[in-house]
Nucleic acid binder design. Structure first.
Lengths: 217, 217
DNA sequence: ACCTGAACACCGTTCAAGT
DNA sequence: ACCTGAACACCGTTCAAGT
């Protein structure tokens, strides 16, 4: 299947292939057997280079975080902490848009990837220069939550035509939501593509938090 | 194993048992076979009451959301939208503290639970009475993200004694983080229990967003 | 209507064995 | 040092068969 099966395995190559596999077929496609197949090897061979599947998952989180750090490193610093942080976070977000499966995975990892730590270390440094105390920075990181890394979890996000999937007897119980959505859909000419512009919504929430933090400085 | 194995199966009973199983042994313990065992039945019997495992997962999300709605319904309305929303969200949060596995699961469900919709419908109604336009409410829901439901995803959260788990050569690369954490640990007498008070941090972030929204009203 | 036994195609992981 | 075959214990799911 793979064009070049003669390249020897390595932890690096296993992780890169796992990321590519998740990008193309989703995280559930990343099984030890499928991953090995993609590498032109047997499943058992992977265990020479990684400890277990959890290790693979930790590893691909780190790969994505490294990608974020590279994107951030290419940025120039802005005039103030807020604008610089905003740029970094939006650059990080672009990486997540290339790896749609990653937010859910970041959510489940409790162990901390070195690259994620490095990202936060930089952010702490930036806010320190911006005049925040360590205590405020600590609060700020919690307040930002996953938004500091460029994604936000939205447990309620009706996709395109979502109202069609919800049974009528349920919809009948939701007068406020229906009123809101119909007004939004009416105002938004792009409503057929889904009822919200994710990028705009992300930036709105991000700016709300950044402005709030700046006010506390 | 189960004290009463003679109660007939039902979708209701399957879902309640699944929640109890996740509470006690974590989400990975919720397999069709284990779940059936807990119910004193065979795995195949479950398929008469639920379509497939995804259906079980959607179902237990709805069970938790119903629990939240009950907790919220027991609350009195406060004098203004912000205080009332705050109370509701903190009540919802208590439900998540009883079901630690739930936030990660809510994150992966794309289909929308009726009870979650009902929760949001109430929140929209509250904000409407509070004087927000539908457009602003829509933005507000995105800005709150998972915090509207009472939890927040924090991709970087060193647990108690986390620095011990990070290899020294990595720590050496993190001057800002180390400086911040050592200062926090020094200030906080409870640092041995972990370096942050989750509840206080959650409320800090929540108030930051609620205050920001209130300012836009 | 409700439950099950047998069977299938898949997992992650081990271990002794090959080169 | 690096890779693999055989094997184990576990998945979700089907389907025809039992009561």
């Amino acid at each position: 299947m793979t064009t070049e099966a003669r390249i020897p395995l390595s932890r690096e190559r296993v992780l890169r292939t796992a990321v590519a596999l998740a990008d193309e077929h989703g995280l559930p496609a990343v099984t030890m057997r499928r991953l090995a197949e993609e590498l032109g090897a047997e499943a058992m061979s992977l265990y020479y280079h990684v400890a277990k599947k959890e290790d693979v998952l930790d590893g691909i989180v780190d790969v994505v975080a490294q990608e974020i750090n590279e994107a951030v490193a290419a940025l120039e610093a802005g005039p103030d902490w807020k604008l610089t942080a905003r740029r970094r976070i939006l650059a990080a977000r672009e990486v997540f848009l290339r790896h749609r499966w990653a937010p859910a995975l970041f959510g489940t990892r409790s162990s901390t990837s070195p690259a994620v730590l490095k990202y936060y270390d930089n952010l702490v440094g930036l806010m320190r220069e911006g005049g925040f105390s360590h205590d405020r920075i600590h609060h700020a990181l919690h307040a930002l939550g996953s938004r500091a890394l460029g994604f936000s979890q939205e447990p309620f996000d009706p996709g395109p035509g979502a109202s069609a999937e919800v049974p009528p007897e349920v919809v009948a119980q939701l007068p406020n939501l229906v009123a809101m959505l119909s007004e939004i859909a009416h105002d938004d000419p792009d409503s057929t593509l889904g009822w919200c512009d994710d990028q705009a919504e992300f930036e709105f929430g991000l700016d709300l938090v950044l402005d709030g933090l700046d006010r506390l400085r």
